[in-house]
Structure formats: structure tokens, C-alpha cells
């Protein structure tokens, strides 16, 4: 892990596997504990159908969190992620069923504009936090223009896909595992992944070894847009309609999932597997409380509490988060 070594030369070789362990291990532990409580209260939930219900709504968040993770990997942050997912649900609910080519053209255009944002942030050296903040207004405005009031209709094949019951495991778990594995292979295991993380941790070194950090940023932003589109599509399938204001919480929950999964804002330190598990943990924190029959008014607070609990675990285990 060249990037960790570069940013923390004095840390010693023990820290790297340890960090990787706590990054993935702690949210996994939190997830298992929550599942245990739920199954203890409602043993019936421990079934194919129960798992489907519990994790159904976590899946769009998983993809939104991975999109956020790519941006955080470069040391940036995307405050427009949730508004963008909302826009995708609107576009999908309005165009995808009847005019699929129009919908696909819009998706491609949106991926291109994500790439354009990466270009703008890099060339003008702008703080990503402010640019994406402005961008959140643009996405929300476009969504309202496409679909002024919640509604529309998800294409039948999309609703059918999210309702599909694959063998062995429920669909949400298959999707989460596939997303985690694919992202892990690309970001954490491949040689290009090392360069990508390096571009966040030490852009000058990557530049000097012959890579264009500009090109990397443009590509990573485009990939982030692509993942956010997947999140929007899955969400459209689940809710069978579009809504400009459906997912503003995804922005911050996504950031929370990245950090929960062992990522850091310093750039270059992210864990795809941790992010996926972090997103599922945060999504499950909400439903756990309804199993405990705690009023729904405490649900959002419980997500904050889980964030603290897991991150406090990291400190107790002696890691020094950045």
C-alpha cells in the first residue's frame, strides 16, 4: 500500500494490515450485532424474505456511497451526490419506459458533466466542496424541470429486476457483494487502483511518474457519476417513481459510510469493502430501532449514534484516524 506508506512514513508496517482490519472489521461487527438483535427479537426475519426486506433500501445507498468514495479517494468531497441520485430517479421515471434512448442520452450527458466538474475543479484548483455545493442546486433544479411533482413510472423491467429472487442469496446481498468485489478488485487490488489512490494521496508523485492527474480526476469523476446513476436506477426500481427530493440524505450518509468503512478525507485512503458494509450498517441502523419499537423520531439520531459508536471503537483499538 504505497499510498499509506507515503502519507505516514513513521507508522511502521504493522499499521497497514491493522488499519485494513479495523476499517472493514468494525462496521462488520456493528452490522452483525445489529442483525443479531433483530433476529433475537424477530426470529422470522432470519429468512430469505427477511434479508430482502432489511437490505432492500440499503442497495441504492451502497452505490451512492461507492460514488462518494471515488471522489473522497482523490481528496475531494461530493456534496451534490444525493441531489444527483434524485435527478436520476426523475429522468428514469419520466423517460426510461417510453423513450429509453432519450434516457440513455441524458445519462451519458450527465456522466460527461461529472467529468466536466472534475476538469473544472482540477484546472481552476477550486475547492470541491463549494463547486459540488453549487452543483447540488443545478441537479435539484434540473430534476424539478424534468418532473415538477413526485410521480412518473419506472419501466416494468426495472421494477421486475429489483423484485427478482435469485438463488442462494437475496438480491440485495448479491448486489452488495458484487459491488464490493468489483470495486475492491479495481481500487484496492489492481495496479491502476494504486495509481488512482496515489493521485489522491500524493498527486505530485503520481504526476512525476508520468501520469496525468487531470485525466485521472476526469475519469474518476465520470466513474463516480456512473455509480450514482446506478444508485438512482435501483432507487427508481424500488420506489417505482421519481422524486427530485427523495435522496438528499444520501450525500451525508454516503460520506459517513466511506469514513465508517475506514476511509479518510486526506485522500488516497479508502476501502471499497468497508464502504459497502458501512452503507449497509447505516441503512440498517434505521430499521433496527423500529424492531426495538423505538419511535421513528429517533431513527435518524440512531444513525448518528452508530457512527460515533463504530468510530469510537477505532480509537479504543488504538488506531490513529487522520
Amino acid at each position: 500500500m504505497a499510498d499509506t506508506a507515503v502519507s505516514r512514513p513513521s507508522a511502521g508496517s504493522f499499521v497497514v494490515p491493522f488499519r485494513r482490519w479495523t476499517g472493514v472489521g468494525l462496521p462488520t461487527l456493528a452490522l452483525l450485532v445489529m442483525l443479531a438483535i433483530i433476529f433475537w427479537i424477530r426470529p422470522a426475519a432470519m429468512s430469505y424474505f427477511g434479508f430482502t426486506l432489511l437490505f432492500k433500501l440499503a442497495i441504492p445507498l451502497v452505490f451512492a456511497a461507492l460514488a462518494q468514495m471515488l471522489v473522497v479517494m482523490l481528496g475531494d468531497i461530493d456534496l451534490a451526490n444525493g441531489a444527483f441520485v434524485g435527478l436520476i430517479t426523475c429522468v428514469s421515471a419520466v423517460y426510461l419506459a417510453d423513450q429509453p434512448l432519450v434516457a440513455i442520452a441524458i445519462y451519458l450527458l450527465l456522466i460527461a458533466s461529472y467529468a466536466g466538474v472534475g476538469l473544472l475543479i482540477h484546472t481552476r484548483q477550486l475547492p470541491s466542496i463549494v463547486v459540488t455545493l453549487g452543483l447540488s442546486f443545478i441537479w435539484l433544479g434540473l430534476a424539478v424541470m424534468v418532473l415538477p411533482a413526485p410521480g412518473g413510472q419506472a419501466p416494468a423491467w426495472l421494477s421486475a429486476f429489483v423484485g427478482w429472487r435469485p438463488p442462494l442469496l437475496p438480491l440485495p446481498l448479491w448486489l452488495a457483494a458484487a459491488a464490493a468485489l468489483a470495486a475492491h478488485l479495481v481500487v484496492s487490488r489492481s495496479s491502476i487502483g494504486a495509481v488512482l489512490r496515489g493521485a489522491g494521496a500524493n498527486p505530485r508523485a503520481v504526476e512525476r511518474s508520468g501520469w496525468s492527474v487531470l485525466a485521472i480526476r476526469v475519469c474518476v469523476y465520470a466513474a463516480s457519476g456512473f455509480l450514482a446513476i446506478l444508485a438512482g436506477l435501483l432507487l427508481t426500481g424500488l420506489t417505482t417513481s421519481g422524486d427530485a427530493n427523495i435522496a438528499p440524505a444520501y450525500t451525508l450518509l454516503g460520506v459517513g459510510a466511506v469514513i465508517l468503512g475506514g476511509g479518510a478525507f486526506t485522500g488516497g485512503i479508502v476501502s471499497p469493502v468497508g464502504t459497502v458494509i458501512g452503507a449497509m450498517t447505516l441503512a440498517l441502523a434505521g430499521s433496527l430501532l423500529s424492531f426495538l419499537q423505538v419511535p421513528s423520531t429517533w431513527q435518524i439520531g440512531s444513525q448518528g449514534f452508530i457512527l460515533f459508536l463504530v468510530l469510537a471503537g477505532r480509537v479504543l483499538l488504538g488506531e490513529k484516524p487522520s
Binding site: G304, F305, L311, P321
Partner: peptide, 19 residues
């Protein structure tokens, strides 16, 4: 105390304050 990035610390508190 938790050595958290301010974005995350204030975000987690904001969830709790909201509740």
C-alpha cells in the same frame, strides 16, 4: 476525543440533534 474529521463529527451530531 474520538479524533474524527470535523465533517463526520458534526454530521453525526447533527443526526442526533435532529432527533
Amino acid at each position: 476525543l474520538l479524533r474524527l474529521p470535523p465533517i463526520i463529527a458534526t454530521l453525526a451530531w447533527s443526526f442526533i440533534f435532529q432527533s
